[in-house]
Simulated scan of single mutants.
Amino acid sequence: MRLPTWLAQHLAALRALLVFTVLLGLAYPLAMVVVGRIPGLAARTDGSIIEIDGRPVGSALIGQSFTDVNANPVPRYFQSRPSAAGDGYDPTATSASNLGPEDIVDTIAADPDESTRSLLTQVCARSAAIGELDGVDGRRPYCTAGGVGAVLAVFRRDGLTGPVTRAVSVNQTAPAAPFIARYDGVLVELAEPGVDYRAAGATIVAVRGDAPAEPAVPADAVTASASGLDPHISPAYARIQVDRVARERGADPARIRRLVQEHTTGRVLGFMGAPGVNVLELNLALDEQFPAR
């Protein structure tokens, strides 16, 4: 007996539902559980939790901050890279900031709580802070000495062409001083809160300044990872922190450098990615070998 077309179609759909439920809802998850219990993988599937004296102190796979209650860096520890995941390294809110290289103008509102910093200003501020903390040159191209984006809103007589008639430092407000006094012979003004200079017809111009082309503070020190959970920093970022950590712990900087080298991993399979330093593992080794004074 031939079944009606509509009934045959429904039975075929039901069979497909049952088959895929068994395959993807039961067999596949169970297979992944079995694979995860293979020796050498079990620790990773359990979260690679690191314990000290039976107390969990973090995961080797998820970064964390080494700051005090006021979110200031604790000088005796190596610092992690910034995180855009929630309030920082929140595994339930893993994400990037979604800000790109064109995000260079701050939103300055009359109410400071409604103001937002551009990616450029965030990078400038982080670089300046790290420079001060670690005693290195924190200057970067397109950053002011005060740690904001060096960006002007430039007005011209004929719109996009003609002589400059007005220039505004869009990321600076009173009582700051403009990062440059004049632009094309025109006095530079400070920005006024709540004004959209782009909408007013200005051209946005980033000013490079005299910062070195290769900043002393590496890129990973001032930008968040795509996941916001990266537990590693670059060897370059670790190197500029060595003297500070050694000074705080009363240790020989050469011995701290050797410890950094011991905790530096190479490229995956020898060619993928970049070398990295696991910050948590390095700081735990510091506490063990060079206890804080």
Rank of each mutant, 00 (worst) to 15 (best):
M1H: 13
M1F: 15
M1D: 14
L11E: 13
A12R: 11
A16Y: 14
L17R: 14
L18D: 13
V19C: 06
L24G: 14
A31R: 00
V35D: 12
V35R: 08
P39C: 15
P39L: 09
G40K: 05
A42C: 13
T45I: 12
D46E: 15
D46C: 03
I49S: 05
D53N: 12
S59T: 09
L61F: 05
L61P: 00
I62T: 00
Q64D: 11
S65C: 09
S65A: 15
F66R: 01
T67I: 14
N70G: 04
N70D: 12
A71Y: 14
N72T: 08
V74Q: 07
P75S: 10
R76L: 03
R81V: 02
S83L: 04
A85T: 05
D87H: 07
D90K: 00
P91H: 11
A93E: 04
S97T: 11
S97F: 11
N98S: 10
T107Y: 10
T107N: 03
D113A: 15
D113H: 12
S115V: 05
R117Y: 15
Q122G: 06
V123L: 04
V123Y: 01
C124F: 04
C124A: 05
A125P: 00
S127H: 09
A128L: 14
A129H: 08
E132F: 14
V136M: 09
D137T: 07
G138E: 03
R139I: 05
R139W: 07
R139A: 14
P141I: 09
P141Q: 15
Y142L: 06
T144Y: 02
T144Q: 08
V148C: 01
L152H: 01
L152E: 00
A153F: 02
V154E: 01
R156P: 09
P163H: 12
V164L: 07
V164S: 05
T165Q: 07
A167R: 00
N171I: 07
N171M: 09
T173H: 01
A174E: 04
A176F: 00
A181C: 04
Y183T: 01
V188C: 00
V188D: 05
G194H: 10
D196W: 13
R198S: 12
R198D: 14
R198W: 10
A202W: 00
T203S: 13
I204G: 06
V205P: 01
A206V: 12
V207Q: 02
R208F: 10
D210G: 11
D210R: 13
A213M: 11
E214K: 14
V217P: 01
A221S: 06
V222D: 01
T223N: 11
T223G: 07
A224W: 04
A224M: 06
A226G: 14
L229I: 09
D230C: 04
P231L: 10
H232R: 04
I233M: 08
S234Y: 10
P235Y: 09
A236Q: 10
A238W: 02
D243M: 14
R244F: 06
E248I: 10
E248A: 09
R249T: 03
G250I: 04
A254F: 10
R255D: 15
R258F: 13
V260N: 00
G266W: 08
F271M: 11
M272N: 02
G273R: 06
P275S: 07
P275C: 10
P275H: 08
V277M: 08
V279A: 03
L280E: 06
L284Y: 08
L284V: 04
A285R: 02
F290L: 07
